[in-house]
């Protein structure tokens, strides 16, 4: 899909910009990855004993794959609500720098903060990546509407996939149920690996995978936090150390 030129009549009015944003969801492989991930999330919610409404609301209101999976798997394994909330909030900290990075691409000097609430809500890794790709080709006045369209489209894809995954897990044989559940770790691993650029990214992914089984031996209820903070801190330390080596 090619967007119309910046000065085209086709950008007149926010409804048109919204439409272009909605259509942009069809122009990215990330939509397919999103679809696959949320099929896994729907299946996971079903197999952990949550209702269909619960799964739907978690996709619409949380709108962050990792947080949803952590929530389902921690609550499903019987930890307390507080432990689940801590694990979710730790995984969600990454949304903070994403929102901070996305907003300057979108706002104009006249933009009010409340106009950006929905943009902040839609912000997750997929939207973040797509904003960098598409927004330079969208006139600035139309960007909020464009992102609203793009975000609504992505949520709709996630929502349909959640429902399909939930129904599949309820009705499929055990083998295919297992195949649907396996989609989530595969899709997450490869999409994260694809976005890894520096040494810090690669190390935090690799160490995070390896350290979790070790941390799980502690059986602390917050094993994911323990391995995540340890692996992330080591990766950050190595990155700083290498930076200093290069300067010296």
């Amino acid at each position: 899909m090619t967007l119309p030129p910046l000065d085209s009549q086709q950008w007149q009015g926010s409804l048109r910009a919204f439409g272009w944003g909605l259509r942009a969801t069809s122009a990215t492989i990330l939509s397919a990855v999103l679809f696959v991930t949320f099929i896994g999330i729907g299946a996971l919610a079903h197999d952990s004993g949550f209702s269909m409404l619960w799964a739907i609301l978690s996709t619409v209101l949380v709108w962050a794959g990792p947080a949803q999976i952590i929530l389902v798997s921690t609550l499903g394994s019987g930890v307390t609500i507080v432990q689940a909330a801590i694990a979710v909030t730790m995984s969600a900290i990454r949304l903070f720098p994403m929102v901070v990075a996305v907003l300057p691409l979108i706002r104009t000097p006249e933009t009010k903060r409340r106009d950006l609430v929905l943009v902040a809500h839609f912000t997750a890794v997929t939207l973040w990546v797509e904003c960098y790709r598409f927004l330079p080709h969208v006139p600035r006045e139309g960007r909020i509407a464009f992102v609203h369209g793009l975000g609504s489209g992505l949520v709709l894809i996630g929502l349909v996939a959640t429902i399909i995954g939930y129904l599949l897990a309820a009705n499929l044989s055990q083998t295919f149920g297992a195949a649907v559940l396996l989609l989530t770790p595969l899709a997450f691993l490869f999409s994260t690996a694809r976005n890894s650029k520096g040494i810090a990214d690669v190390l935090s992914l690799g160490l995070g995978l390896v350290l979790y089984p070790v941390a799980a031996l502690l059986d602390s209820g917050v094993d994911i936090l323990v391995s995540g903070v340890a692996a992330g801190t080591i990766a950050f330390g190595v990155h700083k150390w290498r930076e200093r080596q290069e300067l010296a």
Binding site: S73, T175, T192, G232
Partner: peptide
């Protein structure tokens, strides 16, 4: 930078958890 590194490692932990302690049908 540190926040991003920890968030990535937590995500990696989630991936490992699903494989090591599989939920539902994946446990078969």
């Amino acid at each position: 930078m540190w926040v991003k590194a920890v968030a990535t490692a937590i995500l990696a932990g989630v991936i490992a958890q699903i494989i090591v302690q599989p939920p539902g049908a994946l446990a078969s």
